[in-house]
Write a protein that binds this DNA or RNA. Structure first.
Lengths: 311, 311
DNA sequence: AAAAACAATAGATAAAATTGATAATTAGTA
DNA sequence: TACTAATTATCAATTTTATCTATTGTTTTT
């Protein structure tokens, strides 16, 4: 049994194809096939059922592949022990961020981070919560920045900040006259909402429907994955939408005029760095966390007087 | 980096010698040296300081060797996943047992175990507590059967039984006339005690000196590591000694006559199966535990009404 | 200072992993 | 049912790697 063989079976499991797995491992298909066979021979069990297309791992194969992941992670940590000794952080950090957080946070901190840690290569993907969870588990991502709690057993959440939601309303909305609002002031009919797959969509629905359970008829449907688009819908049409607090940072005075805050306790979302239980690349992730905390206003560090919305 | 290289550096660390490590790994010294060098090269750090004799691991070397142990353990678990599927237990189980437990327990259960699990090879060593702890940590032993609690952070204790201590007294001892005794009835001057290194020695001293803190002058010193020898000293000379409950099992009527029980709560020792946190070979160890429990009288399963002595 | 023990080095050899070409198998389609 | 495309297994040749024997420097012990 070798570490390479373990890498190979993980690749086959990940891509469900010997050909693709071989490409990803930068070897030819026979090479990979041979090594997988050898491993199967030394263990005395078939790991994959090749009679099906695409190949699927056997029952015992699933268990073994999982354990193989653990072995490789523990092995990774050896290299990490070495690079941790270096004064300077070094290596690459693969981050997944949900689209409702990314635009307000990343541009602000990326420059500072890259300057502070010039040897670290940040690789960022905008992905949905579901994708990030999946890829954290397989190790394709090192960490995720998303709204929690996830109630995922194999992941560890490191809460970074608590971001209030605010209403953003057009002048002809009934909400515009109010100084501050309550969740059941909101008429779901006039609220622009993100399309499915975004956790913030669920959170917003959670806030609005909490008391006003009137399922109203939607006259018009517009699907977007971008909070900025929602804002523009309000700006250029009418109605209202819910924005995360950080979206206010770049607003003009005219736009800030349309913001209505919720009465305390304000609905808020918990945003966390999420990592595997393996705690790989801990130092880099800690550095990233500190960079975020430095940027975030102090009031957002605590969840006091906030009503953290579930997903 | 390969698993073999990790095995090699662990061997070098264990034996503090390239020559011996090579022998234990069944390769020649240059082979092992080369692989260690290669690993040092890929990691970019020296793992051992060869300028000193015997070789010592560097600071980073210690960390890396520890992590290497974790990697190999996790790798072992892959094989275990396979053998766990087998209905029959299979493999070898290396057990360390303290000498004050071994003679009363092992002969009773070994036959039953070997019969029940014919494919398991039991390898038993009688060792002191300290040695067992040490070798559990390095993985040279799979489990230990010894008196607990050990307060060792990396080991897990699975209490198996609670064994009372009893006094064994000669006819001309003042204790002989009593029906049952208290710890401070015992005169340390006339008690035969195990030599240093045995945890039961400390426990016995703990019992006797707890209240009678009179440090008395010992007229005669006899060093033995065997509880049976202590018993014979009482049989053929005079004085008294403390025996573990299981030692009574094989006694003649004449000998049982010399036993004096302590008043409740009787002083007792906790005997546990101790394993690494890695939970390797869990199934075999569970089987062993059940075998022991089957043999042990029911009253010994619980620590109720017993005064468990610290080590 | 000499001897013994130890680790590093060099060249030769055996073992292995990898490759390219090809055969066998499976899934989907006409 | 036969055909095509895609996928995996097999085989011989090649490259790479690990290991061995013999030997050379070190360090430690006597």
């Amino acid at each position: 049994m070798t570490l390479v063989q373990l890498e190979y079976i993980i690749a086959v499991d990940t891509y469900r194809s010997f050909v693709v797995a071989a490409q990803k491992c930068f070897v030819t298909q026979p090479t990979l096939s041979m090594q997988v066979q050898k491993l199967e021979e030394t263990l005395g069990v078939k790991l994959f059922d090749r009679s099906k297309q695409p190949v699927v791992p056997t029952d015992i194969g699933i268990e073994i592949i999982n354990q193989a992941r653990t072995v490789l992670i523990e092995n990774q940590k050896i290299k990490e022990l070495v690079s941790d000794r270096q004064k300077e952080l070094f290596g690459e950090l693969k981050i997944g961020i949900i689209p409702t957080v990314a635009p307000y946070l990343l541009p602000k901190i990326i420059n500072g981070f890259v300057e502070k840690y010039p040897l670290v290569k940040l690789i960022v993907w905008e992905k949905t919560t579901e994708e990030i969870i999946q890829q954290l588990k397989t190790g394709m991502l090192d960490c995720g920045l998303l709204s929690t709690p996830l109630h995922e057993n194999n992941l560890v959440e490191i809460p970074v900040f608590y971001e209030n939601f605010v209403a953003y309303v057009s002048k002809n909305s009934s909400l515009f006259k109010k100084k501050s609002i309550l969740p059941n002031d909101i008429n779901l009919e006039e609220v622009w909402i993100l399309n499915e797959g975004h956790c913030m969509r669920d959170q917003v629905l959670n806030i609005c429907q909490r008391k006003s359970s009137t399922k109203s008829f939607q006259h018009f449907e517009y699907n977007t994955g971008s909070v900025e688009t929602l804002k523009r819908m309000v700006d250029q049409n009418n109605g209202a939408t819910i924005l995360p607090e950080l979206a206010l940072e770049e607003m003009t005075v005219k736009q800030l005029d349309k913001v209505r805050y919720f009465k305390s306790p304000e609905p808020a979302r918990e945003v966390s760095l999420v990592i595997q239980k393996s705690f790989l690349k801990r130092k880099m992730i800690d550095a990233l966390k500190n960079e975020i905390i430095d940027f975030i206003p102090k009031r957002m560090r605590s969840k006091k007087k906030k009503d953290v919305v579930e997903i």
